[in-house]
Design a protein around this nucleic acid. Structure first.
Lengths: 348, 348
DNA sequence: GTGAAAGCGCTAACAA
DNA sequence: TTGTTAGCGCTTTCAC
């Protein structure tokens, strides 16, 4: 028997040529078939798929990317892995990407510009079809590196004046107002706010939205009840303690994120203050384990799924748009209140 | 001015040829310089780097992969994203990979063989340099697809008889014995165990190790105190309730994983049973938020960092070993007890 | 509809 | 040490 058409040749993985040979067509036809081109007759299509199955052929992505310029890879850059919000965001992004035939490349910056630069570099080298920059206000000129190469980009809470940059706006206001209304409805009139770092754009927005919500609800604002924390558990504990040293005490605390709220839960527990009977606590994010705290955390949900979806869609719209079209867009992701067990009427 | 050597040509991204041209060397010299080959004189090296900087050149990974066969991509396949253990494992794996100049490709199977098959396919198409299969006992023949193509593979708790498959053994026993000893030292004699699904290899091992630890500590084993759950929060709640219906009650519950333990914490709270004063609870995994529960969970730590490191090292050892060397190995990842607030002496 | 052939950007074998 | 050159496996004109 001649040594050519055996389906399990041991010295080489099957390539497009092997498939073409077995199916007795040209490699162009194989390529067309794989890529769903309509200009292949049913007869040949069938032969080709048969050969592909028989040889257990898988196309080589590198070769495809090299010639087509499209990698079917989407990058996502986040900041602080310590905050569970980000892993959750990545998971969502990955799931959506895979469902659309893409893979993802992850970059974590740890707020270090040098690391961000390396991330950007890796993304460009791998020829990603788009990059979602989810660092919430720590964007750097490094991003030029990406945009100058014509790679679509999507930012959270940050507008870039570039034809292939899109933006996702986050509507914290809706959720924060709902929280304040919820608390007011419960009978609270004395609300404190544990803010995030002032350097973070999103933190500042949340704080301002809280002030506005307070005003809208006709509730008084005590300057000393706004405490700047750092979005960490420890920060929440520190913020709580700072609040406790004050003469007059709030009956409810709204936090700029869930980690802070969890810190408050912890500190209140240690201080012998019962939540929600003696103190109501509200978080923001609704990280997965917000429902696992004791009591389960009432919080303002910022859906990772929605955010990830918006980011991916923005990128895909740009990546798959015909040449020259400016698909730049703005997306809006909203927030909503999730009432659980950490809020209740204030003590009589 | 002639239109050639400007550093910002607008119609095309710089390629290796452009660099060679600017540096007045051959493309081979550029390639050698980038790849750190020692056979380039300092003089030329310098010129090349200068040109690279000037042009802002970044090598094209697809081309590199295509010709070298190495992608510098590592795959990691996990199962249930619902369990926080896995995102955490992925994070660790990613961090280690990036530190070594690799990127990662994520696959989540949701215990669906068809999805696993798709994952395997994607990994092969992208020409990953190795795959870590962290599904803990749900391995499938699909993996042959990967191994037959000569791609290194590493499994958790599962030995594969293949020259490029490595295994990571998990020593649950050490941690579980420590937990039982800890409880016994506190004065507990009546320990229950909320097991994981019997179909899961790791769950079975944990259960058996618990039985052995009990025997080693000279503690009695009541068959009805071993309750099969499913490694979820809800499962933990159900398991706790099943236990409560028994006539005689344990004073401590060891759980097959943290999610189960958190379910117990929740159920105990709702039942008005105080932890740890009236009931001690121990988890297993030490997921990140185990320290955020109230009370903070005493648990047996299975380090994601260590596991990820072992997996990555196994893969890298195989991928970078010279041709023909069998680098197949076994790694051992141990467990240890982390004492927090959910354990205390039993009620008098 | 189908096939032949020209590269995509790079590495590595071989020459010099 | 440095340069020349032949592909890596595929997509995509361009003919037929």
């Amino acid at each position: 028997m001649p040594s050519d058409t055996s389906q399990k040749s041991f010295d080489k993985l099957p390539d497009i040529r092997a498939v073409a040979g077995l199916a007795k067509v040209s490699i162009a036809t194989v390529s067309r078939t794989i890529n769903g081109s309509s200009l292949v007759s049913e007869r040949l299509k069938k032969r080709v798929w048969q050969a592909i199955d028989q040889l257990n052929y898988l196309p080589n992505t590198s070769a495809r990317t090299l010639v087509s310029g499209r990698s079917h890879l989407m990058g996502i850059v986040v900041e602080n892995i310590t905050n569970p919000f980000f892993p959750e965001l990545i998971q969502s992004f990955e799931k959506i990407a895979v469902a659309h035939g893409y893979e993802i490349l992850i970059g974590s910056t740890n707020s270090d510009p040098a690391v961000l630069a390396k991330c950007a570099r890796r993304m460009v080298e791998r020829k990603v079809d788009g990059v979602a920059v989810m660092t919430f206000g720590e964007e750097e000129p490094v991003l030029d590196q990406i945009m100058h190469r014509g790679i679509p980009i999507v930012l959270a809470e940050f507008k870039l004046d570039d034809p292939n940059a899109s933006t996702i706006l986050l509507d914290y206001s809706t959720g924060i107002r709902a929280a304040v209304r919820h608390l007011a409805g419960l009978g609270h009139r004395n609300l404190a706010f544990l803010a995030g770092p002032r350097s973070l754009h999103s933190a500042l927005t949340r704080e301002n939205d809280f002030r506005a919500a307070l005003a809208a609800a006709g509730l008084p604002l005590r300057p000393e009840w706004i405490v700047v924390c750092d979005h960490t558990l420890k920060g929440g504990i520190a913020g709580f303690e700072q609040l406790r040293r004050l003469e007059s005490q709030p009956t409810a605390i709204v936090c700029s994120n869930d980690m802070t709220a969890i810190g408050v839960l912890r500190a209140a527990f240690l201080a012998g203050l019962r939540v929600p009977q003696e103190l109501s606590v509200v978080g923001l994010d609704d990280v997965d384990f917000a429902e696992f705290t004791l009591p389960p955390l009432t919080t303002i949900r910022l859906s990772r799924v929605e955010l990830a979806r918006a980011a991916f869609e923005a990128l895909r719209a740009q990546a798959e748009k015909p040449e020259g079209v400016h698909a730049q867009r703005e997306f809006l992701v909203s927030t909503s209140l999730v009432v659980r067990g950490s809020t209740a009427p204030p003590p009589a």
